[in-house]
Structures are given as C-alpha cells and as structure tokens.
C-alpha cells in the first residue's frame, strides 16, 4: 500500500464554506514499539460556521487526535482540512498546558493580541472565579483552577474557532454548570464555531447543535444527530428525552462497531 504521509493539509478557502470541514481518509501513527496504528479511517465531519459540535466516543478512540488535526497541529494525515480562511483559534487541551514560570495573568496576556491585557477581561475572569488568583503561579493552583485558567485563555483570544478537549472535567458541578451556560451564551453571541470533546451525553445535549459519535479505533463517525436550536437553553425534560432517543438510536446500530457514550 502506497500512501503519502505528507501534508494534504490545506487551508483552502471555499465559496460559502466558512464551515469547519474535516475529511480524514486515514491517520496513522507509530506506537512506542514501532508498529503503525491506524487511529482514524474514513472520517468526515462538517460543522457550519457559528455552530457547536459535540464529539463523543469510547476512550482512546482518537478524539484528541481529531481535535489536534482540526487545530492544524497535526498535518501528518491523509485527507483534507478546511477552516475559514482567516480564523482565530482558541483551544483548551486536555491538560491545562500553562507556563509554570508565568503568573495566571501573564499566561492569559501572552496569547492576546498586542495592546490588550487581562485587565480588559474583567467579566470573563470574574465568571471563572480567577480574580483572586491572577498573581499566582500555576503551581500554586489546584487542577480545577488551572483548567479554568486554560479556559479563560482560550476565551480571551476572542476565537472564531474554538476547540475544547473535555474542558469541564475535574471542575465541581456548580462551576461546570455555570461555565456551560457561559460557554453556550458566548458561542452563540459571538457565533463561534466550536468543537468540544466530551464524555457526558447530557452535557453534550445541553451545549451542542450537532452530536457526533465516533467508533472504536480506527475511528469514524458512526452516528450524527442535529438538534434544533430553537429551545435554548434546553430544559431538563428536553435533555432527558433527547438523551433517550440518542441512546435508542445508538443501541440500534451494530453493537460491535457502535460507540456508546460513557458516563451518566
């Protein structure tokens, strides 16, 4: 089999396509023992501009890999990636990835365009409960706080494309709920195209316009579902009924290849 592992990655501007569009025919990496492992095969994903997509699937199926490809951090795959020609990327990695030698404030300021400082971000900092921690170093923060800094950093760049890798893990439920609300409001208001990896189906339904379910390795989208945007924020009853419906649909899919959302 002959394949070209070079960058088929092109940020092609396309008419009417301010959407995020990924077509990954194959993504392989070398495991520690030198064997190639195919993590993604034949995956297509399209997210209209300004919409929110939730990405679910079994652990280790390649969600993080997919997100890295979407971010343009990994061009070593066969396929194409289309992003809006001029976009600002905000990203929350699975780990906070803060600079330990810079304070919280400096960490946020660092990614901002020149001339802007974290002091302009009062409301955001307030919502995330970081006001008292701006002068601290990341080593002095709990993991939950560090994750909130990472979220603040991603929001602070006023992104047009936002990629989130399980952003609400290790936060207490109250904070997580408040952040979800905030995230929904922000992404709608600013029309941010958002792709969010999550394990919680209820969380995904609360946030998203599109649900994507991935299969086991090599990952592909086995089930996608579009949600109506009108009834936002979704009520508990709505979330429960959609959840039910999605679970049924997933169960109907071939049990061997279908992914079932974890948690909850």
């Amino acid at each position: 089999m002959k394949t070209f592992w070079c960058s088929h990655l092109k940020d092609e501007p396309n008419a009417g396509a301010d959407a995020l569009e990924l077509r990954i025919d194959s993504k392989t990496y070398l495991s520690a023992d030198g064997n190639p492992v195919e993590v993604i095969r034949g995956l297509t994903l399209r997210l209209e501009a300004g919409t929110f997509g939730a990405l679910m699937g079994p652990s280790g199926c390649g969600k993080t890999t997919l997100l890295r490809i979407a971010a343009g951090l990994d061009s070593d795959f066969v396929g194409t990636r289309r992003v809006p020609p001029s976009h600002r990327l905000g990203i929350v990695f699975q780990e906070p990835r803060l600079l330990p030698w810079r304070t919280v404030e400096e960490n946020i300021n660092l990614v901002l365009p020149e001339g802007k400082t974290a002091t302009d971000l009062g409301p955001l900092v307030e919502t995330l409960g970081l006001a008292a921690h701006m002068a601290h170093y990341p080593g002095e923060l709990s993991l939950g706080l560090a994750r909130r800094v990472a979220i603040a950093r991603a929001f602070a760049v006023r992104p047009t494309l936002l990629l989130l890798d399980e952003p609400f893990v290790s936060l207490d439920e109250t904070t997580a709920a408040r952040l979800r609300e905030e995230l929904t409001a922000l992404t709608r208001r600013e029309k941010i195209t958002t792709l969010c990896v999550t394990h919680g189906l209820a969380e995904a339904i609360e946030l998203a316009d599109h649900l994507f379910f991935l299969s086991h390795r090599p990952a592909a989208v086995v089930f996608a579902r579009q949600l109506h945007r009108r009834e936002l924020p979704r009520s508990k009853a709505d979330i429960a009924s959609i959840q039910h419906e999605v679970r049924d649909a997933l169960a109907r899919l071939d049990g061997a290849t279908a992914s079932s959302p974890e948690g909850r």
Partner: peptide
C-alpha cells in the same frame, strides 16, 4: 505540549 500550545495560539 507547551510547544504545541504556543503554535495553536499562534505565538
């Protein structure tokens, strides 16, 4: 990982 972060945010 920090390198990747820096690239993602276009530093």
């Amino acid at each position: 990982e920090l390198d990747e972060m820096a690239r993602a945010f276009g530093l």
